[in-house]
Design a protein around this nucleic acid. Structure first.
Length: 456
DNA sequence: ATCGGCTCGCGCAA
DNA sequence: TGCGCGAAGCCGAT
């Protein structure tokens, strides 16, 4: 077959299954965490393959019950976004199929049944996703590619190992950032129609068959989906970005982008945000401060989860931190709270309780307080192992952006010194950085913050 | 209000 | 081998 030059950078792609391209059924994009029709390198790559082969393009999404203990809150945000995406895809003559059940089994079955000519999926370093992909690759006889459509600089290309800190990854990203920060081509109206599409609304049926924890309710202050994500981005750039450097660590000020749920579900691409921020009329220091978090810190979290498969447990911490935490494991805890006491915000610390309630009731905790929140869980739990488990449980249960590489890296930073340096030794924390209640309340108007936290 | 020390290890210069 | 410096701090001295 003729190999045509592709506009998606080859360094963004990896081969998961080496097999000659066929010329039979559709090209399939198995959509994972990049849940959007626009500005999606994985989808664009799949479309280019399909155009070259002159075949239809089908996007499939595999929907599992209780994925990593997600609750109705996250499912509802995700499905609302997917509905909008599926409509956008259909408008481009790209078919969308929602497959309910065991993801790798359902995906492989669909690929085999439709006699697909190749399969594209998006990059995500979580263990469960890697296991799914491996299983699918084993059970199909067709080429399968993976595209990093999340990071601006592809994660597996920028570094071959776990980076020690932001300062070791930053220069590697910056050296090649502009090579990868290219504008997105538009998704084309696909000229070859897929004839096997099922009639009817797949979402109604799927919702009925899902078995998920419904005790954590959806939140109504934020709208899901690609167009809401773009509106949120534009509002942030226009109204809040200029004061971001001064106000970002102040939980009583409304200065954050509120983009993390959208970024988590891939309803917006960080490169889209990057390009919009760059071309905005905002002081350079504000752009720099925001882009550091949008690019370096987010991509550092993916780097961590890609190269450290203990990203969600004590074993994944750096050696110096494990050593010092073990040394202080038996230190007396002045306060010791059970999971339920923490979950219901019944501690002696009004600031911590407020942050916890903000998360439980809103699905989003202020970014700066997430650090304080995590460090106090270490201080009040019987071991660092327990603290990590509890923090991940609460984060994944209540945050809209739970189960994100950023969530794991953030918790490991707070509790276990990941990507951080050693500091003065003290009880429980050892040499892991400590944060104190007294310093926090001196830094910002916490009464104002607490006043605005939704208490139910 | 501001400053230095705390303390570890990577990466680069020499 | 030495040295600078880092993902968001704390504390005590001045």
């Amino acid at each position: 077959m003729v190999v045509v030059a592709m506009s998606v950078d080859k360094r963004r792609t990896r081969t998961l299954k080496d097999y000659p391209l066929k010329n039979t059924g559709p090209v399939i994009y198995w959509m994972g965490r990049e849940q959007r029709a626009s500005d999606n390198w994985a989808l664009l790559y799949a479309q280019e393959l399909a155009l070259n082969l002159k075949r239809p393009l089908v996007v499939i999404f595999t929907l599992a019950s209780g994925y990593l203990d997600a609750t109705l809150r996250q499912y509802s945000f995700m499905l609302d976004g997917l509905k909008e995406t599926s409509i956008s895809l259909e408008k481009k003559n790209i078919s969308f199929a929602l497959l309910v059940g065991d993801p790798p089994a359902k995906a492989a079955l669909f690929i085999n049944k439709t006699n697909a000519c190749s399969v594209v999926t998006d990059f995500e370093p979580l263990k469960i996703k890697e296991a799914w992909k491996k299983k699918v690759a084993k059970n199909i006889s067709v080429a399968m590619f993976e595209v990093d459509a999340r990071n601006i600089v592809p994660c597996f290309f920028v570094s071959p190992k776990q980076e020690f800190g932001a300062y070791t990854l930053r220069p590697k990203i910056n050296r090649i950032l502009l090579e990868f920060a290219t504008p997105y081509p538009a998704l084309k109206k696909h000229p070859y129609k897929y004839s096997g599409a099922k009639k009817g609304d797949p979402f109604a049926k799927a919702a009925a068959s899902l078995k998920i924890d419904e005790s954590v309710k959806p939140v109504n202050w934020v709208e899901a989906g690609e167009s809401a994500a773009k509106r949120t981005m534009k509002y942030f750039i226009k109204e809040k970005l200029a004061r971001y450097p001064d106000a970002k660590n102040d939980a009583s000020k409304n200065a954050l982008s509120y983009l993390s749920p959208y970024l988590h579900f891939g309803q917006i691409s960080s490169l889209t945000v990057f390009n919009e921020v760059k071309k905005s009329c905002t002081p350079q220091d504000a752009k720099d401060a925001f882009l550091e978090e949008l690019v370096v810190r987010r991509e550092l979290a993916d780097n961590f989860c890609l190269y450290n498969k203990n990203y969600d447990s004590f074993d994944g911490l750096p050696d110096w931190a494990k050593k010092t935490l073990v040394k202080h494991k038996a230190d007396k805890r002045e306060y010791l709270y059970s999971l339920k006491e923490l979950e219901y915000a019944k501690t002696h610390d009004a600031l911590w309780n407020a942050a916890q309630l903000e998360m439980v009731n809103k699905g989003k905790m202020h970014g700066y307080l997430r650090m304080y929140w995590g460090k106090k869980i270490l201080e009040w739990s019987k071991s660092p192992e327990d603290a990590i488990k509890i923090a991940i449980y609460l984060n994944d249960r209540y945050e809209l952006d739970g189960r994100d590489t950023n969530g794991y890296a953030g918790i490991m930073w707070a509790i276990g010194g990941l990507h951080d340096r050693a500091w003065g030794e003290r009880d429980i924390f050892g040499k892991v950085r400590f944060m104190s209640y007294n310093s926090q309340i001196k830094k910002f108007n916490f009464k104002e913050y607490i006043k605005n936290v939704p208490i139910s």
